[in-house]
Nucleic acid binder design. Structure first.
Lengths: 145, 145
DNA sequence: TTATTTTAGTTGACAAAGTCAACTAAAATT
DNA sequence: AATTTTAGTTGACTTTGTCAACTAAAATAA
């Protein structure tokens, strides 16, 4: 299998996996929050003392777009901005109790999605699946695109 | 590793891979065609005597949206619709010479993207990568979400 | 056969998602 | 002190995608 063929295989996998994730997401997306919003929730919950810029860097999202989403979250009482003591330009983001509830709902729905995907496989297959994913991550992860 | 943990790992991989594909696509998307449009070109080129409905089914795309995209392609002289002899509701889609040129351009750019991603890996790693992808495909492929 | 339902595709109206540039204010650099 | 950079906001806009109503043809039922 030469390089050209390998590239074709990788692209075929990408199409397959894009479609799969698209299907999963589509189901999810009948919540009140978009995919981008769900990812933002996730980053806020996971990142300790995370700022808007951090999210911009992590998710490759437009800063204006993010600004508006955060403003909406704030207005909905889901998000709390705490200005940095040392740099007045920065605000650290965290979810309120209500925001955390929303996040948990989205998180549970995502879990359910995957659980459903995986439920029809027997245990051994799932173990293999996770192994392959880990390997792909390891091979592709370290450096940037 | 219990089921809960497996689900977390799979979701982590999905985030990782979504980001990766997103980065690749973003670069691509500075062509004149959107991701959806690129996929539509692809389906038309690959599918013999493919109709709009076939694409709708394959790509989970809204029929109104597709209709407009196809109309645009037609207006740009990229697409040819040939009405089915046996069913006047259906038109079979194919690319014109100009359309094929556009497709080839997009296709080459996609190849380049992947080639670049893979270039920094040594041959053995690429072989492994493709193997893992094939395995994931095999495990997840047969049934539907 | 006619009546009804389904399928393929189009169109209008709209909403959601994302982009771009101009701007303010603070911090860092020269 | 002057200039540049960084963080974030805002307005104006484009692109992308959705939904429902519609036409015409085909399939199915009566």
């Amino acid at each position: 299998m030469d390089r050209k063929e390998q590239i074709q295989k990788i692209r075929a996998f990408n199409r397959f996996y894009t479609d799969l994730i698209g299907l999963l997401d589509n189901q999810l997306l009948h919540s009140d929050y978009s995919l981008a919003e769900a990812r933002i929730f996730y980053e806020i919950v996971m990142g300790k003392s995370i700022s808007a810029s951090d999210i911009i860097a992590k998710l490759n999202i437009d800063k204006g777009y993010l600004s508006r989403i955060l403003k909406k979250f704030e207005k909905q009482g889901l998000l709390c901005k705490e200005p940095s003591k040392s740099d007045a330009r920065i605000a650290y983001l965290s979810l309120t109790a209500a925001g955390l509830q929303v996040f948990k709902g989205l998180d549970r729905a995502s879990d359910e999605q995957i659980r459903h995907l995986v439920d029809r496989l027997d245990e051994q297959k799932v173990i293999e699946l996770v192994g392959h994913m880990k390997s792909i991550f390891t091979i592709l992860s370290p450096s940037e695109v």
